[in-house]
């Protein structure tokens, strides 16, 4: 790799680290709650909001459009918070997430088929590209996620309790706040990195960490390390082999998880053997 190419590397890498920071944390909650596809579902609702604003004649990057997409995200958060009916009906939360995803994706297709001056712009919005992320976006995202991170740090006991399945007072309100802040983050992340990459940042570090640790603190440490290392390796491979950057990182996540799983299996075997 030429030295010149390395100069292009640091913004995607920085973006990858920022995404790791917030998503590896949120991923612990998401995996613990068993709502794996909630990010795809919320991103899709946000996209539907954008599409509708666009149809109403607003520019794709205008504030009005942004508030439409935010409004739809909050609506989605409300749906998820107020449909915790597993206790009463045995309907899993994941079913509702899937339904919301399918319906909002289909609604966006219907809306686009009516008046789609910029289907390519809308497509562009759902597949943000981490390679061409700008300095401004990186700085803005870092600031936004720091605020969300602080919010979660302050109320960590409440959020953690719900994710661990405990009943706390005013659970629906806290759940709503969780999904709203989560939706806010995911919507911004998807615009930077695309749906596939955001999903990987959210789920893979957290799953990998669960192989090796059970305490939340250790899981976070493992998740953050894995996310940072995989981002760096993935971006290096993408530059070395000239491959689309986002997809390369996703595949690197897959390979890394596989390797960790093999290590886990081997160490566990030898551990059991020793115990016997």
């Amino acid at each position: 790799m030429t030295l010149e190419l390395i100069g292009f590397l640091y913004l995607p890498l920085l973006a990858g680290l920022i995404l790791t920071g917030i998503h590896a944390y949120l991923g612990v909650h998401v995996v613990e709650r068993g709502v794996i596809f909630v990010d795809l579902s919320l991103a899709q609702i946000a996209a539907l909001g954008t599409t509708i604003a666009y149809l109403a004649g607003h520019d794709l990057h205008s504030n009005v459009t942004y508030f439409w997409s935010l409004g739809f995200t909050i609506l989605g958060a409300a749906i998820f918070a107020f449909t915790r009916v597993h206790g009463e009906t045995r309907i899993p939360q994941e079913a509702i997430i899937g339904i919301v995803y399918a319906v909002s994706a289909a609604a966006a297709i219907l809306a686009m088929s009516k008046a789609p001056e910029g289907t390519e712009h809308l497509k562009d919005m759902l597949v943000g590209n981490i390679l061409t992320v700008s300095k401004f976006t990186v700085a803005k995202t870092a600031a936004l996620y720091a605020i969300v991170g602080l919010f979660h740090y302050i109320f960590r006991k409440k959020f953690l309790a719900i994710s661990m399945g405990e009943q706390i007072p005013r659970i629906k309100l806290w759940d709503f706040l969780f999904y709203t802040s989560f939706g806010f983050v995911v919507t911004s992340s998807v615009a930077i990195a695309g749906v596939l990459l955001v999903f990987s940042y959210l789920i893979v570090p957290s799953v990998a960490a669960m192989l090796f640790a059970s305490s939340i603190g250790k899981r976070l440490a493992i998740g953050w390390t894995m996310g940072a290392v995989v981002s760096a390796i993935g971006i290096m491979i993408s530059f070395q082999a000239d491959l689309p950057t986002g997809a390369t990182i996703v595949c690197t996540f897959g390979i890394a998880l596989l390797l960790l799983a093999i290590i886990w299996r081997l160490t566990r075997r030898s551990g059991t053997a020793l115990a016997n």
Partner: peptide
Amino acid sequence: HFVEPKPSFLLLLRN
């Protein structure tokens, strides 16, 4: 209309 950005494109444009 749709081109997937790759790192080499940045280098091409840079030079």
